[in-house]
């Protein structure tokens, strides 16, 4: 508790109040990253210290503030697996096992540094309150606090490109301000439909020394879905969305 107070006090003293509306800025960041409802193709690469790689290709569909599904397209051992997130509820469906089982945000269905919350990420403004905003080296620094205990990371420090209103780097912290991982947003790309955003997210973690995971976006497209797509019963049928 004392550490938290010291952290907030230090932050407040170091950075005097700015006229920027942090909540609005975070919402802008969310909308610049993705449309509220969209479909996307991503590749996730886990890189081990010796350079060995394991790759996963995924299709994802998101609707509104709290609904996202992810379907694994490759490798063959994971093809057909799917995950569903409805707010704080998360499930994993493995075709052979058949029935969806509940999973948690801190687990990882792919191994490596990215966990389920990173793969099934909702809007930041849906999960976090802005505790502070400041300018750091010509960019914005947002200090975010999780709204509930169920969010994977209690605190985030988000460096935002002042001009593009897109994240450059995010540090994910525990309640005691211990660094869990850092996300680096790279390679801005025009995906069409007015979506210009980083195509690559790299992450490393002091908990996985020498390991790195990378998420690459190939396609993002605004698309609306029926609510029924985001249900346990629909999970085995996600391939038909593509």
């Amino acid at each position: 508790m004392l550490k938290t107070i010291i952290f907030i006090m230090t932050f407040l003293m170091a950075f005097p109040a700015y006229a920027v509306d942090g909540k609005k800025l975070l919402e802008q960041v969310d909308r610049n990253l993705n449309p509220e409802s969209y479909e996307a193709y991503r590749k996730l690469i886990n890189i081990e210290p010796d350079g060995k790689r394991k790759e996963f290709t995924m299709y994802s569909a998101k609707k509104g503030q709290d609904k996202i599904v992810v379907l694994f397209l490759a490798p063959a051992s994971d093809k057909g697996r799917s995950t569903l997130r409805l707010g704080d509820n998360m499930w994993l469906n493995i075709p052979n096992i058949g029935k969806p089982i509940r999973i948690t945000s801190l687990q990882s269905v792919v191994g490596g540094v990215f966990n389920n919350a990173d793969i099934m990420n909702l809007d930041y403004s849906a999960e976090y309150d802005v505790e502070g905003v400041s300018e750091a080296a010509g960019n914005y620094l947002l200090l975010l606090k999780a709204r509930t205990k169920t969010v994977a990371y209690d605190r985030l420090k988000m460096w935002v490109d002042k001009g593009k209103k897109l994240p450059m780097k995010i540090e994910c912290l525990t309640e005691a301000s211990m660094l869990i991982k850092t996300l680096y947003f790279k390679d801005h790309k025009d995906f069409g439909g007015g979506i210009v955003r980083p195509a690559v997210i790299e992450t490393d973690s002091p908990l996985y020394k020498g390991y790195k995971s990378v998420m690459i976006y190939a396609k993002i497209k605004k698309r609306s879905f029926k609510d029924e797509v985001f249900t346990l019963t629909y999970m085995p049928n996600l391939e038909s969305l593509r």
């Binding site: 193709y41 890189i47 299709y59 690459i216």
Partner: peptide, 13 residues
Amino acid sequence: LAEESYTFDAAEI
């Protein structure tokens, strides 16, 4: 080769 750029071929999806 670990530092090579990442590729994502459209044929994969």
